[in-house]
Design a protein around this nucleic acid. Sequence first.
DNA 1: TTTTTGTTCATACTAAAGTATGAATTTACT
DNA 2: AGTAAATTCATACTTTAGTATGAACAAAAA
Lengths: 154, 154
Amino acid sequence: MRNIVITFGIICLCSLVLFQMAKVAIIKDTLPVEVLVGVFSLLFLVIGILYSRRQHVIVQHVPSDHENTTLLAPPSVVIETKPADKTLIEQMGISKREHDVLCEAALGLSNAEIAQKLFISESTVKTHISNLLVKLNARRRTEAVKIAKELNII
Amino acid sequence: MRNIVITFGIICLCSLVLFQMAKVAIIKDTLPVEVLVGVFSLLFLVIGILYSRRQHVIVQHVPSDHENTTLLAPPSVVIETKPADKTLIEQMGISKREHDVLCEAALGLSNAEIAQKLFISESTVKTHISNLLVKLNARRRTEAVKIAKELNII
DNA sequence: TTTTTGTTCATACTAAAGTATGAATTTACT
DNA sequence: AGTAAATTCATACTTTAGTATGAACAAAAA
């Protein structure tokens, strides 16, 4: 929670600085208002996306009712949830994040690619994979994927 | 993919309208530039968060797209997709031995294990795998297996 | 007969994958 | 407030995987 406050504080500070710089530019008539607004809109769009991705884990735990309220999110897509055997996943002691990594690995992605996609470091992916191999009693990711598909958990 | 485009289109449209409204307000000196930028920044911050949230939902569910349909339509679907498409294998330029290696790799075996099983050296297995990656347009054996299964050649 | 193709193998290399360990932070739960 | 589980990350290390290259050999095709 503190981190979020700190992050926002930094963002606000940076924005203020940028804003003052931009204002000077406007006075000099070298920068139209449209460009200024556009730049800031884009900036905050990116900030919003990045921020949301961090919060992603929390969002995930909230069921379908939350997703329906999101902007332009068609309910039909959301309703089609994973058919994976969640009971079995729990029994195997596979955590949510590990399962995420497993799904991506099943798509044939490398650790680096999975890391980029899930916004975590490659070493974290390695940790997850390593744990998955133990839990699925596999020795390679290919075997892990095969077993996971046989168990219908992906 | 269409949804994303549509969403962005709508967002851009709304932004344009809002922007024109805001511009009028500026001319009338009823709205300072600071407020304008602030409003837009906030607006896009929210848009970014919502957009990102929705993206995650979609991304999360896409991987299990195939299993989705196979589950809803009982096991019979899975059973009938057994025989490998030999015509396609030929078309892809995949030789018999390469196919053998591919099948073993799909079982999650290592190169050394495949070599032992097929009574060839590990370097031969590597050669076959390397050729397979080119022919299947894959970058890893995991991806090769995934593609091969999608093409129904294993 | 020459050429092509498939199969085999080796060597040397680079790039990933996976292991082991320790640690900071978060989240959920008591 | 404290604790256990989960998530994240790093570093150092070992093991596989994959690439590039060259080559030998047999069988089919030209």
